[in-house]
Design a protein around this nucleic acid. Structure first.
Length: 309
DNA sequence: AACAAGACCTGCATGC
DNA sequence: TGCATGCAGGTCTTGT
């Protein structure tokens, strides 16, 4: 689930709550996430102060300090179903953690941070004290941040050069652009008017500029909406994001295209809150108009074949 | 280097 | 109602 906007939303929610807090108690309830929680994780956090919280791609980086000495940096990834929730201090005994609450972190002031991840595709790792997070193996190969001021058409085209596979698949490659996932790739390609099947390295300068702008616009809109909540994602206070109500194509197989309105006369709304049923989208009128679902790179792909070329 | 496919793990919706 | 099946927001590994 969590793509760049969701991780950014979590980051913005956590930062004011956590900055400056001292961590006093760490409970690892389930060590086998996607990767084993590193040895010394609890010791590294216990007694450390949270200096800040930043996002890089879909990762959260939480630098720690001891006194005025920089200490380790915690790396979080939420995988497909991960959440980080904050429970305020409570005089009453806390409820027993649920089966998927894998890491509990208490602060000096009695806040509790809970890392919850049913599918256990998430991970945590540590950057050693004094180390540069950018050189960490999981971060070193990441492409440019699409919301950085320097991200534009030429930057994107340079990353795509030489790739003959579909643009849809290339944009999911975190070494090309960092932070995009299946939802926002579908949405950005729609707004750029580009067919997902187009060879990645074959875009013109104009198309590259359009795509870069569409990526930035979609991400900015999604962040403003607090991210997308389909099933698992929650903000740190447990509330839902709302961008799922603004999808143009994702999960809308069989519905009319919101751009060119093709397929409108024979639309078959999915009526299930935005999640399309597998195989839906075949009844959208003559000549395949309306939003269509295909599978590309093993992932569901939604597009309007009329508007996106 | 680029690409395709499979694996990881669990919960949910659907269909029978 | 209960069971089997397929699908899901991500990333890594393996093989071509």
């Amino acid at each position: 689930m969590p793509e760049l906007p969701e991780v950014e939303t979590v980051c913005r929610g956590l930062l004011p709550v956590l900055a400056g807090r001292v961590l006093v108690r760490i409970v690892l309830r389930r060590p086998d996430l996607r990767c084993p929680i590193p040895d010394g994780f609890g010791q590294a956090l216990t007694g450390a102060r949270v200096v800040g919280l930043v996002r890089r791609a879909k990762y959260l980086l939480m630098p720690l300090a001891r006194g005025d000495q920089a200490a380790e940096t915690v790396i979080w990834h939420l995988g497909m179903s991960g959440r980080i929730l904050v429970h305020p201090p409570s005089p009453a005994p806390r409820p027993e953690p649920g089966p998927h609450d894998h890491i509990l972190i208490d602060t000096e002031e009695g806040l509790r941070l809970v890392f919850h991840d049913p599918r256990r595709f998430g991970l945590v790792d540590l950057v050693p004290a004094g180390g540069d997070p950018a050189t960490h193996p999981r971060l070193a190969g990441l492409g440019p941040e699409p919301l950085d001021p320097g991200f534009d058409g030429p930057t994107l085209l340079a990353r795509l050069a030489g790739r003959r596979g579909p643009i849809k698949v290339a944009l999911l490659d975190q070494s090309v652009v960092a932070g995009l996932g299946n939802i926002y790739v579908c949405e950005a390609l729609f707004h750029a008017g580009l067919a997902p099947i187009r060879p990645a390295g074959g875009l013109s300068e104009v198309e590259g500029a359009r795509l870069a702008a569409a990526i930035r616009a979609v991400l900015a809109d999604a962040i403003a909406a607090g991210g997308t909540s389909l099933r698992d994602y929650r903000r740190t206070d447990g509330t839902l994001g709302s961008f799922q109500h603004r999808f143009a194509v994702y999960g809308r197989a069989g519905e009319p295209c919101p751009g060119c309105h093709c397929g409108a006369a024979v639309a078959v709304p999915t009526g299930n809150g935005g999640r399309a049923r597998a195989g839906a989208g075949n009844g959208a009128g003559a000549a395949g108009h309306g939003i269509q679902r295909t599978v590309m790179g093993g992932r569901a792909t939604y597009a309007c074949p009329h508007k996106q070329r």
